[in-house]
Amino acid sequence: MDEAAARDIIVEKLKGKKGKSKFYLKDFYAFFPEEKPRTVKKLVNTMVSEGTLEYWSSGSTTLIGLKGVGKQAHAEDED
């Protein structure tokens, strides 16, 4: 997979979802139906370590979104 293009696709797709800022890993697999889940997982985690994406954890489940986007970031006094 072309990594640079894949990064753009991820950012594009996430920006396109109105009213929702946090996504399951599975949602990212769906952006790249041809790729193995493991490959997509690696890229998503790399994008977190680069600061483009960030994790949101419910404790039991982890969601992923664009860094700084979303309601609870502000509601929880964390900005």
Partner: peptide
């Protein structure tokens, strides 16, 4: 709606 993302 201010605190939560409804789809979640």
């Amino acid at each position: 709606d201010k605190m939560c993302e409804i789809p979640l």
